[in-house]
Design a protein around this nucleic acid. Structure first.
Lengths: 237, 237
DNA sequence: GAGTGGTCTAGACCACGGA
DNA sequence: CCGTGGTCTAGACCACTCT
């Protein structure tokens, strides 16, 4: 038994995706939907707000809710995309190589990012991601040992996130992301297939848990030709 | 006279920013806030949801709302940032050079992006953005003539957005953004200071109006060393 | 003026966390 | 168990658009 507003949301999403409701047309009014779904108006509004946040409709006061064209393949709004999902989306067999796995004292930069004291320890994981036979992404993870007491090469070769969520019962909640372009380091050149590329796209992530504690710093270093980031920005009124 | 939930939101934001409420502590419960602000719980919840969406708090069921550390300079959640704002934020005197301004028939790519027919016309605007004496950004805009009948070099040198919103009364509502890294074109090399740079960061924007009509396609081409994108991604549960 | 979405209320029940 | 946040209701008034 799921939420009422979520089922309404999903119903309408399906209608939009299937073309049952056409782009540029108006959704039934909130009052009509209230009757149709036999619920209260606030519940309908919750569903509509979700649709709006996810780019399916645009609400206009005094007019109605306009359906937006979602025909071109949209990913969902930018979020945490794991490497595994990414590979599946691209229809390629990804491969992960674990280059480094160690428990260490964080250096100054990591300590600052993760707001650690000198005594804390972190897991350092360096992994190469291979897609279609080419080494394209270098992932450097630093995980606070306080939350992840143990880590093995097998886990890292598979998916750290699955291990965290399924075995350790940690819930990743959100991340602050920063994207910059840098010159490749020697490490980048050694571990990635960078012939002829002079820049590298670095995505720095600070990952927070459920309870708002900061537990991981990640740098995902991408070869520029294989990098793509999609975002959906709604004007903040 | 502004909204009640917005004033509550702003009040709490100020308290967090000023350090009156400390990171990692709990906000008063929704019931307590309801009493304190003399309002209903749903109104408090609206304010708290805004706080959560903007990264100030993390709500945890059965526990409360945890205040997140926002000390490191955060921009607001990624949005539409105009060049003028960007320059002001960086404390530099920006300069805009209009390289090209013409009314044209869109080519195939633009026609597809803006979903135009062959008969529609678009304004093409090419502008160079100079910060601190260096030409760093190349902006290429294509605006549907249907919405913008007239455009002058003066407007382009100042701010197109201000003209649209203040004079034409158009309301920009949201944008779909895509970030990729490309090799510089001859045009990039001619119009930007690119000595020694081998890549260019391209931000492609589809800009929609108030009523969900698609009216502008923009490419903002940045020198990689001056590019930075910050995002705040909340897990979609 | 009729109809739309935006805000606000006062109350109810539920799911979850912690003591 | 109590207190927390999550959902839902039925009703009210307002601001806006369209005709």
């Amino acid at each position: 038994m799921t939420n009422k507003y979520l089922t309404i949301y999903n119903t309408i999403v399906e209608q939009i995706k299937s073309g049952e409701i056409l782009p540029q047309t108006l959704l039934p009014s909130e009052n009509e939907l209230t009757e149709h779904f036999q619920t209260s108006r606030e519940t309908i509004r919750k569903a509509l707000n979700l649709l709006s946040q996810n780019g399916y409709i645009q609400k206009v006061r005094g007019k109605g809710s306009i359906v937006i064209d979602v025909s071109k393949f949209d990913f969902p709004v930018s979020g945490l995309v794991s490497f595994k999902e990414l590979g599946q989306k691209m229809g390629r067999k990804p491969r992960t190589i674990v280059n480094e796995l160690e428990l260490m004292k964080p250096d100054g930069y990591i300590r600052q990012q993760l707001q650690l004291s000198g005594k804390d320890q972190v897991w350092k994981v360096v992994r190469t991601r291979e897609i279609g036979g080419e080494k394209i992404i270098l992932d450097k993870d630093f995980l606070n040992k306080k939350f992840v007491p143990e880590l093995t090469e097998e886990i890292c070769a598979d998916s750290i996130y699955e291990y965290l969520e399924e075995d350790l019962n940690l819930t990743i909640s959100f991340a602050k992301k920063e994207i910059v372009v840098e010159e490749p380091t020697d490490e980048d050149r050694a571990l990635l297939d960078l012939d002829g590329f002079h820049n590298i796209v670095v995505i720095k992530n600070l990952v927070y848990l459920d309870d708002a504690s900061l537990f991981q710093y990640t740098e995902s270093r991408h070869r520029p030709d294989k990098f793509r980031f999609v975002d959906f920005a709604r004007r903040t009124n």
